[in-house]
Design a protein around this nucleic acid. Structure first.
Length: 273
DNA sequence: CGGTGGACCTGCTGGC
DNA sequence: TGCCAGCAGGTCCACC
């Protein structure tokens, strides 16, 4: 479900409603996620106040007093939402943090690919989940020169390259397809056969598509919602993703779906070379 | 080393 | 109508 834009949209929706609140209790209802939920560490959060909500790649970082950060990854089907403390438990609700002010922050994740960690804020960057991540695509420095330099000596197709989190953080299956459509580059093109101007175009396309998706509240194909339960609207703006057989809006060629590294890739054979 | 394919899960959809 | 194969927004690891 969530790539960088969706996680950023969740972050923005939660931050003003979380900062300044205190965690009053943690409930671990179903600890089976990608890694077992650290129940004891979550229980130990009681009494601490929330200082901020950040994002790195597709990870949400809830910073608490006392050099402590709760890391949440939404996997494919995770939803992190605020609800009244009295709200009944939902199906697939794994973790809930009760907050001062009578709300509860809860993680619902049917497919269980999500992740919850409790880490020391100051040591976060050294954690194995974070230490190998590439740059944030919306930060300064993510440009054509960077992509070209990382591609030196590599051979694979550009689409899987963009989805490699050590190359750039946060680009997933939807936005890799969409960015390459914008750049007019065929997803199977080898990274060894992309000239500098096209790397610049690729970097720009990635940034633009992510920024627009954030503006539109993310992409809701099935079940994505922000922290307040609101769906996104960027699915209306998707040019190729999930549009197999439909016409390209520019050249009217039928959009094609192929398989790359076992993931569906969508592209326009007319516009992308 | 880098790249691919399968594994991890549940739930929904489309074709028979 | 009902069943089942296939597929889904992510990540990790074994294997070539």
């Amino acid at each position: 479900m969530p790539e960088l834009p969706e996680v950023e949209v969740v972050r923005r929706s939660l931050e003003p409603r979380l900062v300044g609140r205190a965690v009053t209790a943690a409930r671990v209802l179903f600890p089976q996620l990608r890694e077992p939920v650290p129940t004891a560490a979550l229980k130990a959060l009681a009494g601490r106040s929330i200082l901020g909500v950040r994002r790195r790649a597709k990870y949400l970082l809830v910073d608490l007093a006392g050099d402590t950060t709760v890391v949440v990854h939404l996997g494919m089907s995770g939803r992190l939402t605020l609800a009244p403390a009295t709200a009944p438990r939902e199906r697939h609700e794994h973790v809930a943090l009760e907050l001062s002010g009578g709300e509860r922050l809860r993680l619902v994740d049917p497919r269980r690919f999500g992740l919850v960690l409790v880490l020391s804020t100051s040591l976060l960057a050294a954690d194995p989940h974070f230490c190998r991540l590439g740059p944030e695509p919306l930060d300064e420095g993510f440009d054509g020169d960077y992509l070209r330099s990382v591609a030196v000596g590599r051979r694979g197709p550009v689409k899987t390259f963009l989805m490699d989190s050590t190359v750039v953080a946060g680009v997933g299956n939807i936005y890799a397809s969409e960015a390459l459509y914008r750049a007019g580059i065929h997803p199977r093109r080898s990274v060894a056969r992309i000239a500098p101007p096209r790397w610049a175009l690729t970097a720009r396309s990635v940034r633009e598509v992510l920024a627009r998706a954030i503006d539109q509240g993310g992409t809701t194909l099935a079940d994505f919602v922000d922290g307040a339960g609101r769906p996104g609207w960027f699915q209306v703006s998707l040019a190729v993703y999930d549009r197999e057989g439909e016409r390209c809006l520019v050249c009217h060629t039928a959009v094609r779906r192929i398989l790359q590294a076992n993931r569906g890739t969508y592209y326009c054979p007319g516009c992308q070379r």
